[in-house]
Simulated scan of single mutants.
Amino acid sequence: MTVVAGQDGAGQRTPGWWGNDSALLDDEEARRRLVAATGRCLARRGTSRIRIEEVAVEAGVSRSTVYRYFKNRNELILAVLLSRVDVAMTGVISSLPRPEDAAASICDVFLKCTDLINGDAVNEALFTAGSRSLAETLELTAEPIVDAVYRHLGPLLRRWRDGGQLAADLDLRETVRWMMAAGVIIMSPPWSGWSPARKRAFVDRYITRALVGPALSPPGNAGPTGPLSVPDNRAEQK
């Protein structure tokens, strides 16, 4: 075994162990390896099936080593989610074509984030209906996740609010929490199966308008005013 450099309460470097790994690792690198291993397990088996033992084997360490850094499976899944939030939100925010326009950008954020699920094995394992819903494993609007999204989206929301595009009395952090909860809806049937154009019309009418009303929107960006084509199932339910 190889000693891992750690620190005691006084800030002195102390020995620790990284399973049977031959590399010299610090705690940050150890956590990164375990998170990466968990992501690979999620891609293969989904959130409902991975076990600590499987993550340990995937990472090439002992089961006790995993527990040194994470208390349980949910903490591992949360760590995977948080690592992906940072990467995803950085890409989404930087790709907004009109970041000065709140109405257009809010819709773009929703659609770009939900589009990241398709074709990504880990995201599909976390969010698609075919696997156990992440909401059953973790609270998607729990504080660590809200904090991670708010770090990226908060500055934009503040700029829009200060510029008069958002209501002045909005609590921006709670706005992020609400947007995340609404995003879960868009990722669920039947909305998840809609075309991009239909999703955009839905987000514009039922989500963006809650934050950016016609009186607050820049000229020409008040959102759609025509009818949204939503199936009427009332006749079938009679």
Rank of each mutant, 00 (worst) to 15 (best):
A36I: 06
G213N: 03
E100M: 14
A167W: 04
L216E: 05
P218R: 15
S192M: 06
S105I: 11
V109S: 08
G6M: 06
G193E: 11
R158I: 00
N74F: 01
W191H: 13
L81Y: 10
S22M: 06
E53F: 00
G193M: 07
A222N: 05
R209G: 03
G16H: 14
A182K: 01
A103T: 07
E58D: 04
M179S: 08
G226L: 05
R159F: 01
E143R: 11
L172M: 02
K71S: 14
I207G: 03
D204H: 12
P231L: 12
Y206S: 03
A235N: 08
T47E: 03
T90Q: 13
E124K: 08
S95H: 11
S195Y: 10
A182N: 03
M89E: 13
A43T: 08
A148K: 11
G9H: 07
S217T: 10
A210V: 02
C113M: 15
T141H: 01
I50N: 05
V3S: 13
E53Y: 00
W178F: 05
E75N: 08
G39N: 07
L156V: 03
P190T: 10
V61W: 02
W191P: 00
V184I: 08
S188K: 08
L116P: 07
R44C: 02
A10R: 09
L42Y: 05
D26G: 13
G11P: 06
P97G: 13
V122F: 01
S217Q: 12
A168T: 02
A222M: 06
I77S: 05
D162T: 08
D115G: 14
R63H: 12
R40S: 08
K112M: 15
P227G: 09
V149Q: 05
P144V: 05
A103S: 15
V35G: 03
V87E: 15
V57M: 01
V66I: 13
K199D: 08
V35C: 04
A142E: 12
F202K: 02
N221P: 00
E58P: 02
L96E: 12
P196R: 07
P218S: 12
R205C: 05
D115P: 03
W17P: 02
A23S: 14
K238A: 14
L78E: 15
I207V: 14
A222P: 02
L134P: 02
P224A: 12
T137M: 00
F202W: 13
V4I: 06
W18A: 13
